[in-house]
Amino acid sequence: MYVYVRSEPNLWTVGFYDPEGEWNPESDHGSSEEAAKRVHYLNGGNKNKQEDDNNE
């Protein structure tokens, strides 16, 4: 399961903990909202309709 952590004052890192408890980073984001969207997607969630509409 992917999660995000605040790794620096203005940086949120998405990643997962392996079975041994080691952190494995996947990507960095400038806001918690962007990190949460990435976590949602990586954990099997779909993009929401508003995001799709904004990208057209």
Rank of each mutant, 00 (worst) to 15 (best):
residue 39 V to T: 02
residue 51 E to I: 13
residue 26 E to M: 09
residue 39 V to E: 00
residue 19 P to W: 03
residue 36 A to L: 12
residue 41 Y to S: 04
residue 49 K to N: 08
residue 42 L to F: 09
residue 35 A to H: 04
residue 15 G to P: 04
residue 21 G to L: 05
residue 42 L to H: 00
residue 16 F to D: 05
residue 24 N to G: 03
residue 55 N to R: 14
residue 23 W to N: 07
residue 14 V to G: 01
residue 5 V to N: 10
residue 18 D to F: 11
residue 35 A to C: 02
residue 33 E to V: 14
residue 36 A to W: 02
residue 35 A to L: 05
residue 15 G to N: 06
residue 52 D to H: 12
residue 28 D to C: 07
residue 7 S to H: 06
residue 56 E to R: 08
residue 53 D to E: 12
residue 31 S to V: 07
residue 8 E to F: 12
residue 3 V to T: 06
residue 1 M to T: 11
residue 54 N to C: 05
residue 51 E to P: 03
residue 38 R to G: 08
residue 10 N to L: 05
residue 23 W to D: 10
residue 25 P to W: 02
residue 38 R to K: 13
residue 9 P to N: 07
residue 20 E to I: 12
residue 27 S to T: 07
residue 17 Y to M: 03
residue 19 P to G: 00
residue 49 K to F: 09
residue 46 N to Y: 11
residue 53 D to W: 15
residue 23 W to E: 08
residue 24 N to V: 09
residue 8 E to C: 06
residue 53 D to L: 10
residue 9 P to K: 13
residue 1 M to W: 03
residue 25 P to A: 01
residue 4 Y to E: 02
residue 44 G to H: 03
residue 43 N to V: 06
residue 5 V to T: 13
residue 25 P to V: 05
residue 20 E to M: 14
residue 46 N to K: 06
residue 56 E to D: 15
residue 28 D to S: 14
residue 4 Y to W: 12
residue 43 N to A: 10
residue 54 N to Y: 02
residue 53 D to S: 07
residue 1 M to P: 08
residue 49 K to W: 05
residue 10 N to Y: 13
residue 18 D to E: 06
residue 40 H to Q: 11
residue 23 W to R: 06
residue 20 E to F: 13
residue 45 G to Y: 10
residue 46 N to Q: 12
residue 14 V to T: 01
residue 44 G to D: 00
residue 19 P to Y: 10
residue 54 N to P: 01
residue 10 N to W: 14
